[in-house]
């Protein structure tokens, strides 16, 4: 069965799982959804402050804010995806339903969360730009396309780590390590012009082969006037290769899920 066939056939279950995820996330916490906004916001403030202090040169605050919010979405999908099978061992062992719904629901629940935080983020960025007399770029209209791309990329990661963690519990430690490394090589708290200074114009397109770099840069290009998304042959490859990743992740997951119940 195809990915979309599965979603369509089980959309009610998916809705239920997403609702479960979102409800349980905020139950029992006084600030609830506010944490989803406060968290990246505090991180952004910390990065802006220390980058000024250490590097001596600033990265525009709106760039950092956009970067941190987008990164949070990916990071949450990876963490959630990692535990979505192992954390539901009871369910997987006892009830039959397409297992792919678990990582799907993690990504979907995080998407809902991301869209809500994104609304706050857009207001913040608009305010910061307004303080300089600028406006949100008209390219903001392209945000849905970027989000869609971002979602599919996050889904491939969630599928991969979900399956891997069932077979090797080392995954969670390894992924924690890789995520911090990935955070630093991705332009979350800095931006592409920062990279250009080190890499030079020739290597910058290659830098975008990192999908996180590509996606975050695209978010910035869509919101901040003057922030550009380089177009080149390498950039085209950068846009296309995550599609292959999704197909691969999907296949691997479908293959692995047959034996999930044996390994949990």
């Amino acid at each position: 069965m195809s990915l979309f066939g599965d979603i369509l056939a089980h959309r009610e279950l998916l809705q239920n799982l997403v609702a479960r995820d979102i409800k349980s996330r905020y139950k029992g916490s006084a600030l609830g959804f506010l944490w989803s906004v406060l968290n990246p916001l505090f991180m952004a403030v910390i990065y802006i402050f220390f980058l000024r202090l250490l590097a001596g040169r600033g990265v525009p605050s709106e760039d950092v804010i956009i970067g941190v919010f987008a990164w949070q979405f990916t990071a949450q999908c990876v963490t959630g995806g990692m535990n979505c099978i192992t954390g539901n061992a009871n369910l997987v062992k006892k009830v039959f339903f397409p297992r792919v719904l678990l990582p799907l629901s993690v990504v979907a629940a995080n998407l809902v969360n991301f869209l809500l935080t994104l609304a706050v983020q857009l207001v913040l960025v608009a305010l910061l730009l307004g303080a300089r007399g600028a406006h949100l770029s008209a390219w903001s209209a392209a945000l849905p396309a970027i989000i869609a791309y971002h979602v599919l990329f996050n889904l491939s990661l969630a599928l991969l780590v979900a399956a891997a963690n069932v077979y090797f519990r080392d995954t969670q430690h390894l992924v924690g390590l890789l995520m911090s490394a990935w955070f630093f090589v991705s332009p979350v708290m800095y931006n592409l012009s920062f990279v250009e200074k080190f890499a030079g114009p020739a290597l910058t397109p290659a830098y975008l082969l990192n999908p996180a770099a590509l996606i975050i840069t695209a978010y910035r290009a869509a919101q901040v006037p003057g922030a550009l998304l380089p177009w080149s042959g390498a950039a085209l490859v950068a846009w296309l290769w995550p599609a292959a990743l999704l197909v691969l992740a999907w296949r691997l997951f479908q293959r692995a899920q047959r034996d999930f119940a044996d390994w949990l």
Binding site: L13, N16, L17, R20, K23, K27, L91, V95
Partner: peptide, 18 residues
């Protein structure tokens, strides 16, 4: 799901059973 109410769990569980 421990955090959800009985009612919510009825719907969730039923959805799991298809």
């Amino acid at each position: 799901h421990p955090d959800l109410s009985g009612r919510e769990n009825v719907f969730l569980n039923a959805a799991l059973l298809g």
